[in-house]
Design a protein around this nucleic acid. Structure first.
Lengths: 338, 338
DNA sequence: TTGTACGCGTTATCAC
DNA sequence: GTGATAACGCGTACAA
């Protein structure tokens, strides 16, 4: 094992440069030599050592991907989209899991640097000043995906969706459908894009609609079924006047909330409407089917990868934020009030 | 950018060997020098080039992971488990998606070889002779995970669950609960472990129980909600005497089947019992909750990674198959007949 | 069109 | 305990 370019060269009776040339067809090689070299390569199952190549070319064709949770459906779709364009363009992805912890994120950024990867797609839960500075010191370009930086200004290239606008749109949508008492059941403050920003969109919409709600209409929970269940429980128990609609921060939260309500004998959407966020596959597996706002994570992954690749191929674009359009999907869990 | 070990050496006023030694602490270095070198490393944010390291040590600390579908929940959990032990032991994973296509699988095996990865965890959909031969020619060890080889004999190290036994157990479980007319709604034949073997377990159980069913009780479909829906539709339409229970090949198939039945006004489990496979998170999000057989994919990923790491550290174990225990989970979709 | 020789950044072997 | 120096496998000026 470990047949090298030199072995091939010797066996084919040519120089190593010639072998190199047929491998990368970087310079013309006569047909006969080319053919002879190919023969020997095939015969020996020769595979060029990309480490050695990378050492010289300063290019590994590896893209790092950092996500909080590998098994989360959102990041699954995102990673699939990323890999879709990366693999098509000859890149392999290196997937890392941060658990959403700052320390781990910093550490991974460092590990990927050591590995000489060509670029990083980073889904950071809270991209603060420290993280930004760290990334800017790195030799590789980074584009944020699905999450935005919590630092003021467009400090880093980003491909995501507009969390504020999305929830804003949802509230307006509910309002247009006759709802006034609208509660919010979203993610934790710690998650900048998916927690803070969505809540911001909710508040903004209510403000513009001149609707005011008790603080007990707002719950921030884990992005999970359990979180939705418990958050809904609290809203239910702490309010004598229940909301007619609940905006949630994810489909999982929505399902959990509905489950709690059903357990209390509260009908969805007859008595309370619930709307999700993400539009994961399973949103249509329930009855009634879940109304939600669709975030095209696969597309987002593709777009982010393309952005990064463009970035890597020299044309360093100024840091800007690209929003992939979302869409409200009306299904069965939102009732029209007159 | 691109500060090297030589830069550090010069600035610290030592030789590059000394720098190398403090980095890997492979040989004693006097405290003062060690400290001085650390200072310079910190100051310059030096990160050793792993390509150069790998070129010499013949070790990249990278583990390749090949799965059919990145965004599939099963492979998400599996990958998470794999990454869990890999990252703990200093390995980074390179995730590749094969789409379940043989050609792509072969190609990925080759790409990973070029990248000098230290080992591969392979979830192949149908690991045939050709694949086996290819893997045996590679310089790195491979362990099959979640899927078994379709070649006779234990030709390659494997960590998975016992698909035959699991479905066998399910049929017996249903039988113990009073069911006799048991249908099968599983995956396609093409998928060796999850398609063929599960069907085999079903047939084996029926044989031993001396139960015979019409061929219209057996449907092989895509591993999806849609597949389950349509397969159930066919079973429903093609049989005047319906089964009292349906064994399925996945939770998704089960949910699809239940959805179809509910649409026809058939109650689950009152009229027909349905049991899933996998025990994905969402199995408990439905009402009634889905009865199923739990396959601990996260654990399986961990076990496979540990097996591979052991393999890589020299002790080449003879090719054997390790089964992670499954467990039948009784919830709400299986009725007890007397 | 082809071959020679150097260098990529690191580890390992060998002297000191 | 420390420092030269030869690999590792490849790409690429440069020479032929």
């Amino acid at each position: 094992m470990g047949v090298t370019i030199a072995d091939i060269a010797k066996e084919a009776g040519v120089s190593i440069s010639t072998v190199s040339r047929v491998i990368n067809n970087t310079k013309p090689v006569s047909p006969k030599l080319r053919e002879r070299v190919y023969q020997v390569i095939e015969k020996n199952h020769f595979a060029p050592n990309t480490l050695a190549q990378g050492l010289i070319t300063k290019k590994t064709n590896i893209v790092g991907v950092i996500v909080p949770d590998i098994s989360n459906a959102v990041f699954g779709a995102l990673t699939k989209g990323i890999n879709s364009v990366c693999s098509r363009k000859g890149y392999t992805i290196m997937v890392c899991e941060s658990g959403g912890e700052l320390e781990r994120e910093l550490s991974l950024l460092h590990i990927l640097e050591e590995r000489q990867i060509d670029g990083v797609l980073f889904a950071g839960v809270n991209v603060n000043q420290k993280l930004i500075e760290t990334m800017q010191k790195k030799a590789y370009p980074v584009v944020l995906v699905t999450q935005e930086s919590s630092v003021q200004g467009e400090v880093i290239d980003t491909v995501t969706h507009d969390n504020i606008q999305a929830i804003y749109d949802v509230v307006l949508f509910l309002h247009e459908n006759g709802h006034e008492r609208i509660a919010y059941l979203g993610g934790l403050e710690y998650d900048f894009s998916s927690g803070q920003k969505r809540l911001k969109g909710y508040r903004k919409a209510l403000r513009e609609l001149k609707i005011s709600v008790p603080s007990s209409y707002i719950e921030q929970v884990q992005f999970s079924f359990q979180g939705g269940y418990e958050g809904m429980k609290r809203i239910y128990e702490e309010n004598s006047v229940l909301p007619t609609a609940v905006v949630t921060g994810s489909d999982l939260i929505a399902i959990g909330a509905i489950q709690f309500l059903n357990g209390q004998g509260v009908q969805v959407p007859e008595e309370i409407s619930v709307i999700g966020f993400d539009d994961l596959d399973f949103a249509t597996y329930f009855r009634p089917e879940l109304s939600t706002v669709r975030i095209p994570y696969f597309k987002e992954g593709e777009a982010a990868a393309e952005e990064l690749l463009k970035y890597m191929s020299g044309s360093k674009p100024k840091a800007s934020t690209h929003y992939i359009p979302h869409k409200i999907i009306r299904r069965g869990t939102v009732k029209v009030l007159k």
